[in-house]
């Protein structure tokens, strides 16, 4: 094992895929000499040159659609969208085209591409550079959506995503970029569609993805001091969803709290409530399933307000205590 940051893990995944398959191309704005808006692609341009590192004009819609065209022709493009907010400019490419070509042609063509993008709040960049827009894509059959929380998962899943024959959206929380973790030295892949138990527990299941997994893990530490045992599930892939992992955990604990950064209304949490309600896990519940999501407002510029609108360790602990109710008292 070696220790590396999340950003380094993403870069290593891109680099190793570029090395292992010459049909892989890395495409985006300012990813060459500049090294990427978040410094993530530093060194790739020097190593692979402009033959493989394809810089673009500021034209997210067209170059993402162009990547769909490349994928139709057998290339495996990795597209970087500088900020997760700008995926709105690529909806036509991903939702109307990438997700549909295989189906509409009854399997005559496929679209093996990855769109990866840094998302989330906490950098003081205000409402148009801080959103979590994954829910927009979850209601589109044909797309896969991956949101890893650790360097190890990020690398292993990104490599799997590049090799997948369907279009994949890969969301990276930018506050995770500088977090570190253990990553295997040897080559490895993490399968798409498999969640992970990040911490075992018996009283309640905290279900989360991306950066909020870390918030849940910290909350679980806190609550352990109070004698509460939390299981923390990291979904890692949102579509296809590892429903079995959720169901088995909730059957064991009897309680579930879903934690995510995006605004709660219309977010992914509601879907997980349904997964539980529609399964036998429902009959094991000791209290209603709860969600903890972002506030219903655009991300504010003021740093105090910005911190307040997303779930925090304190909020998770508070919600868990409430859910444990009398049995906890």
């Amino acid at each position: 094992m070696k220790i590396m940051t999340y950003a380094e893990a993403v870069r290593e995944a891109i680099r190793e895929e570029l090395l292992s398959d010459e049909s892989v191309y890395f495409i985006g704005e300012d990813i060459g000499l500049y090294g990427g808006c978040f410094g993530l692609s530093r060194g790739l341009w020097e190593e692979f040159g402009e033959e493989r590192i394809i810089e673009t004009p500021i034209t997210e819609g067209a170059f993402t659609s162009a990547a769909v065209g490349m994928a139709l022709m057998g290339l495996r493009p990795i597209v970087e969208i500088m900020f997760g907010d700008f995926v709105s400019l690529t909806v036509d490419a991903m939702v109307d085209h990438a997700a549909k070509y295989h189906f509409m042609s009854a399997g005559q063509v496929k679209v093996p591409m990855v769109l990866r993008t840094p998302f989330g709040s906490g950098t003081g960049a205000a409402a148009q550079h801080s959103q979590s827009l994954e829910a927009m894509y979850l209601n589109t059959p044909g797309l896969k959506v991956i949101m890893p929380s650790s360097p190890r998962d990020a690398k292993g899943l990104l490599r799997s995503a590049v090799r997948d024959d369907s279009p994949v959206l890969f969301f990276e929380n930018k506050l995770l970029y500088r977090t570190s973790g253990e990553v295997p030295e040897e080559e490895y892949f993490i399968p798409i569609g498999k969640g992970d138990i990040k911490r075992e527990g018996s009283d309640i299941t905290l279900i989360s993805y991306s950066r909020m997994v870390n918030v849940c893990l910290e909350a679980a530490e806190e609550l352990e001091k109070e004698g509460l045992s939390c299981e923390v599930l990291d979904l890692r892939t949102l579509r296809p969803l590892d429903t079995e992992l959720i169901i088995n955990s909730v059957k064991k604990t009897g309680r579930a709290l879903i934690v995510y950064e995006a605004p709660m209304f219309g977010g992914f949490g509601g879907e997980i409530v349904s997964v539980i309600n529609d399964s036998e896990a429902f009959y094991y519940l000791d209290s209603p399933v709860k969600r903890l999501g972002g506030e219903e407002m655009p991300v504010p510029y003021n740093p105090n307000l910005e911190k307040e609108i997303v779930p925090t360790v304190g909020k998770v602990c508070g919600e868990v205590r409430k859910m444990m109710g009398e049995s906890y008292e």
């Binding site: 819609g61 067209a62 170059f63 659609s65 162009a66 990547a67 769909v68 065209g69 490349m70 994928a71 139709l72 022709m73 057998g74 290339l75 493009p77 036509d92 490419a93 109307d96 085209h97 070509y101 509409m104 042609s105 005559q108 063509v109």
Partner: peptide
């Protein structure tokens, strides 16, 4: 959406102008 790969017809996009950038990417690949 009449895609006919064996005759090198990628098919149409129902979105007006939707196929235009896709063609640019296909030409890039070629």
């Amino acid at each position: 959406h009449m895609t006919d790969v064996k005759n090198f017809n990628m098919g149409s996009s129902g979105v007006v102008a939707g196929a235009v950038p896709i063609a640019v990417g296909m030409a890039f690949a070629m």
